[in-house]
Design a protein around this nucleic acid. Structure first.
Lengths: 307, 307
DNA sequence: AGCCAGCATGTACGCGCTTACATCACACCT
DNA sequence: AGGTGTGATGTAAGCGCGTACATGCTGGCT
């Protein structure tokens, strides 16, 4: 009578009984917990990834613990420590630039993990993401092909952030291949806000010497801020200045002019990260790491240099 | 020698030992777990609240489990069930429109809880949020005072969503107090996207009869979509049409014209929800429920009727 | 010197569950 | 009819901790 068990369970549910996960975890040595470590939830990009990852894992009966590091490596390691104490059986972490002890801790326990979002080709870690270097190289190449030779960059804080670092070197390397370089006074690093984009553009145009004809922004928020200020200053975009973003926020399509940017499928990344961890947990053969690519979305904010 | 304990702990840490939370939970009957139930992380509003709540609770050594219902009440109850099985000691839930069993389950276990974001004055639950009805009443009153008599509403799905329902009745009740009503063909319900805002405006202006002079949107995304379409159609905003949003997204300040909207301090709400739960957990006297208020931000997208 | 308070240290039980194993009954086979 | 295999059922151990309690010790008191 296998239905007896169901009956018991039904009565138990009626009485409001629920199995105690702590007891079950202790006895079965399975917690059905996974962790995901991100810089912050206050960012569409990460929120989308986590949402997708959680949906996938939750469908397999596993609960996900979300840790936010606030872009602090020590905090990140600490978060992982408490996740491990809680018994996570898998971990997804954004960015591969982490304290070594973070990876040591999880390796020591044999917990499968995956680096989300970034994907450096030579990485020693399993990655589910895209190549930030290649993406910004492609973007820079696109602008070079439009005839631009004079660039400015407005980007988010690069400290301890491999994604931003890779983006910057993607730009620099590609420029270097044409014998070009970024003038230090044309590089602006600060918070990823509209305001910082605006103020950076003002400073940029205040500097002496040749003016850039193209500004590469670290993400759409900075680009939109720059766009807003350019409009306010009466600068013709893309006539005298081309501006690019990154992320393809929904609003990017509707700025004036519409923003040239790059799109990454964050939902697919979150899902793929979950799938990877799931196969690792089920002892299945390891699937090859998925390589995503950032897609260039050409809109109206970019055009030929010196048009 | 109290430092012996620290020494042991230090050595343990060196060896990579971590206390097993399941064991600790079982023995101490404390899990140091709290839950938060939201519709989705893919929404700045909820992401900000969760981020703030998590930061606060994490500082008190408690880990937060995040559950997403995707606006599905059954899914919400199910999520709470698994959270309870995991032993959460407190719960924050967005919206007070929930399956009764959700509240029954947590009450039966004596788990302190709080309803976040919405705050109906007559609610039987402890709330940390603002009064959606009052907020939209204030907004409608503002438009009435500008002389508007003909309104349209574009809003997000209202099914099982007390916030949206309250907003709608806030509008309707205030109009009714002036003997006005919404014409059914001027009410548009659909996904909270730019696109739905755009298409609703087109449909709205296609309908026969008197045209609305003001459009109240359920949130900023819909309002910006509407604004974009109005611009594309060459409609003068706010000259012939006033448009309002809700949320005060960062971009709202920079649309053209800038968007009149309402602001709610979601970070403060998340923090207050955490604080409330913390005092409940510490057996301190119950603090009075905090009442937040949505602040009207008047910008350029609204003006006198028939100007 | 003897006594007890006070503190440090040690021991063992049990939290709620899973699981391995022992037990039992039954039916089938030789 | 006895032996053996199969499955159903029952039992107990133990997962890794916290904690209450027992034990041992020291110091200050009479």
């Amino acid at each position: 009578m296998p239905e007896v068990r169901d009956k018991i369970l039904a009565v138990a549910a009626e009485l409001g009984w629920l199995p105690n996960a702590a007891g079950a975890a202790l006895a079965s040595r399975r917690t059905w917990l996974a962790g995901v470590l991100i810089p912050t939830l206050d960012h569409d990009v990460f929120a989308a990834q986590v949402n997708a990852l959680q949906a996938r894992l939750s469908a397999s009966g596993i609960t996900v613990l979300i840790g936010c590091s606030n872009y602090d490596l020590d905090e990140a390691a600490e978060q992982v420590r408490v996740m491990l104490a809680r018994g996570i059986e898998a971990l997804a972490v954004v960015g591969e630039l982490q304290r070594p002890e973070l990876f040591e801790m999880i390796s020591a326990r044999g917990v499968p993990y995956v680096v989300m979002y970034s994907h450096a080709p030579q990485s020693v870690h399993p990655c589910v993401g895209f190549d930030n270097h290649a993406a910004f190289s492609k973007l820079t190449r696109y602008l070079l092909d439009l005839g631009h030779r004079n660039f400015a960059v407005i980007h988010q804080p690069s400290l301890d952030n491999d994604r931003v670092l890779a983006r910057l070197s993607g730009i620099r390397d590609t420029l270097a291949s044409e014998g070009l370089a970024l003038r230090p006074q044309h590089v602006f690093e600060g918070p990823a806000t509209f305001e910082f984009g605006r103020e950076s553009l003002r400073k940029c145009l205040d500097t002496a010497g040749p003016r850039p004809t193209a500004i590469i922004c670290g993400n759409d928020t900075l680009a939109i801020g720059t766009l807003i200020e350019a409009r306010a200053m009466g600068i013709d975009v893309p006539g005298t200045l081309s501006i690019t973003g990154f992320d393809d926020l929904p609003i990017a399509e509707f700025t004036s002019p519409p923003l040239t940017t790059m799109r990454v499928d964050n939902v697919a990344i979150g899902r793929a990260a979950a799938d990877y961890l799931l196969t690792r947990l089920s002892q299945h053969p390891i699937v090859p790491r998925e390589a995503f690519e950032a897609e260039l979305i050409v809109r109206g904010s970019t055009g030929p240099a010196g048009a």
